[in-house]
Design a protein around this nucleic acid. Structure first.
Length: 596
RNA sequence: GGUCCUGUAGCUCAACCGGAUAGAGCAACUGCCUUCUAAGCAGUAGGUUUCAGGUUCGAGUCCUGACAGGAUCACCA
């Protein structure tokens, strides 16, 4: 039985004993004691005054007395204004520590037999990835790791939007202005090359609109009639008709883009188990429309269009098939949801997609539930906020984006600059040094994007570069490197910290118990992060842990400690902290260095 | 206009789902490297939690209504 459970049970007994009242266990809640008071757990007695028929202080004291006498783990208590603060005895801390320390599966919960798919990244193939995609990719990868640590079998999926009017725009512009340029001939990454022509398309399009307007057309007419947009639309029709020349150009440009994406994904440190392509899935879902009609979930209007009526659930009517029988966006998403299930028999499915599609997913999930899908209740939209610049929203067509490749490169360079300035790479080979810059630069970037609650939109100011001090990735990484140095020395001088005997330790410092307490919360935080689909929970926890460790490090001697049992304990405590940091950071997709 | 999200220190963010005197980091200021990594530690200062009501022992958190910002509401994707 763990500590909390035994205290809660003790409180239940206290109520029986003192007030002859049966209090259900789930009504007894312990909170961590605030730092300024003595104790570890706090029991708030206000809700129970009707039961005790006494004032808060008296009630708290009565329960405290009972616990102190009858519950082994409770050493002492104090009462402050109706808050019962419980102090645990020293042996509990050491036992708790030993228990975690000897667990070979630190941070890994047992398999729960459930399969979950995490779909993330999902790029368009007409342009390179930008800052917003970084948030998406880091979130998706991290959430997949977190779910895996919670015992799920996880399938990471990437649904590539490789078809449609947007890629046709790049293709048309390439035909006009490309002059046979290739990534090889120009030295441009394939995704950047496609993006270049997407921008060129837009410039030409705007130019043509202007011309038509000055020739007397309205803005609206001009937008419809500009020759280049007509060309793009024509190309899309040809693509759908499987026109050989168009398909061949499409394949070539997409191949370039994929090579570029691959390089970016490698640098990001993300990966996928399954790729879906919209060119394969965009016709799916038509059978589901028929199924929905047969089941009465959908209905048909006079012109033949098919709709779902969600007004009873506070939403609107939503089109699922056009009057001419063709699909709309949501049609293929219905089909793809089924496809994912057919492929993997998943229990849950997480879609990492920006919050501009909140409504779309609400509708999609409601439909799947109405259709009675077994996985309907396991559908989640991990909706995240946009990353804004001080100048406002990023617009790829207008070139006001922070490019993902550029930003990652800058971060690594900044890390190099910082490290050299601090003179911390003595004895490093060149490879080791550049590996370190990579770890630190990417760590800073990932941590920066993941420490914020996903659903909040966030501001990125390129002028104020991402920090390396304080609440940052490098701070946590630094704490790890610091401990690694301790462990190297411990190995060197032969401290027995692997299977230590702590029986001789009679007293623990406050910073030691605080550290053990934090370490004991790791699994709870992993569960919470999974429940909320929020890597920010882990990021926050790791900062607290690293902070607490640094306090311990500054407060207490390790190798200068004369009592060898205490020394071994402190080394072991350091080792467990390092292990927890390493595992926790891996859940964020961040590596930690041995030296920095 | 309807719906959804957000609003907390100068800035970026927390607050364990209703608990104590609302906490961190950055920026500012003050200490600490002839003991294990100072990318660190300790401290000072900084708040009417956008506003107005309500619910109760107790509200940043729940309810109502304003205000501000964002997203969305296409036979677009």
């Amino acid at each position: 039985m763990n500590i909390q459970e035994s205290i809660i049970q003790g409180i239940q007994l206290a109520f029986q004993n003192s007030y002859n009242h049966d209090l259900p266990l789930d009504q007894i809640v312990l909170a961590p004691t605030r730092k300024e008071f003595q104790g570890t757990y706090t029991f708030v007695v206000f809700p129970f005054l009707k039961i005790s028929q006494a004032n808060p202080d008296t009630t708290a004291k009565q329960i405290g007395e009972y616990l102190k006498e009858n519950v082994a783990v409770v050493a002492d208590f104090n009462v402050v204004k109706g808050f019962l603060n419980l102090v645990l005895n020293e042996k509990v801390w050491l036992d708790l520590f030993s228990q975690i320390y000897s667990n070979p599966d630190l941070g890994q919960l047992p398999a729960n037999g459930q399969k979950v798919m995490v779909e993330y990244s999902s790029p368009n193939t007409n342009k390179p990835l930008h800052l917003g995609h970084l948030r998406n990719n880091f979130l998706g990868f991290s959430v997949a790791e977190i779910l895996s640590a919670n015992g799920y079998e996880v399938i990471k999926a990437n649904l590539v939007n490789d078809r449609g009017i947007h890629i046709c725009k790049s293709m048309v512009a390439y035909q006009h202005f490309g002059n046979g340029e290739t990534p090889e001939s120009s030295g441009l990454k394939g995704d950047h090359l496609a993006g270049k022509y997407y921008v060129l398309f837009d410039q030409e399009y705007k130019k043509q609109i202007k011309e038509l307007v000055s020739a007397g057309q309205t803005e609206e007419e001009a937008k419809k009639n500009a020759p280049i947009i007509l060309e793009a639309q024509d190309m899309l029709r040809k693509w759908e008709a499987n026109d050989e020349a168009v398909v061949s150009l499409w394949k070539q440009m997409n191949a370039w883009v994929y090579a570029g994406f691959e390089a970016t994904y490698t640098k990001m440190g993300v990966s996928f188990d399954k790729y879906y392509y919209e060119s394969d899935t965009y016709l799916l879902g038509k059978d589901i429309v028929e199924e929905g009609l047969a089941k009465g979930v959908f209905f048909k209007k006079e012109n033949g269009s098919v709709w779902v009526d969600l007004t009873s659930e506070g939403l609107d009517e939503k089109l699922v098939r056009r009057g001419d029988g063709t699909s709309v966006y949501i049609t293929q998403d219905l089909g793809t949801a089924d496809l994912k299930y057919k492929d993997f028999q998943i229990d849950k499915s997480v879609y990492v997609v920006g919050n501009e599609q909140d409504y779309h997913f609400e509708v999609l999930f409601k439909i799947m539930r109405k259709l009675g899908r077994s996985y309907g209740d396991g559908l989640y939209h991990l909706s995240y906020g946009m990353v804004d610049l001080p100048t406002g929203k990023m617009k790829s067509r207008e070139g006001t984006v922070v490019d993902a490749d550029d930003l990652m490169q800058e971060m690594v360079e900044t890390a190099e600059h910082h490290t050299k300035e601090l003179g911390k790479i003595e004895g490093f080979t060149e490879e080791q040094a550049s590996e370190l810059y990579e770890i630190l630069g990417m760590g800073a970037l990932k941590y920066f994007l993941l420490k914020v609650d996903p659903k909040k939109r966030m501001l990125f100011n390129p002028k104020e570069s991402i920090e390396f001090q304080g609440y940052t990735g490098p701070f946590v990484q630094y704490s790890h490197a610091r401990i690694a140095a301790i462990l190297r020395k411990a190995d060197q001088i032969g401290v027995a910290y692997q299977n230590p005997d702590f029986s001789g330790i009679s007293e623990l410092a406050e910073s030691e118990t605080a550290l053990i307490f934090l370490l004991s919360n790791f699994e709870k935080k992993i569960s919470l992060a999974a429940e909320e689909l929020s890597p920010a929970v882990i990021a926050q926890y790791l900062f607290d842990l690293a902070k607490e460790y640094n306090r311990f490090y500054a407060d207490l001697p390790i190798f200068h400690e004369k009592d060898l049992a205490v020394q071994a304990f402190r080394v072991a405590l350091s080792a467990l902290t390092a292990k927890t940091i390493k595992k926790g950071m891996s859940l964020l997709g961040i590596l930690v260095p041995e030296r920095m």
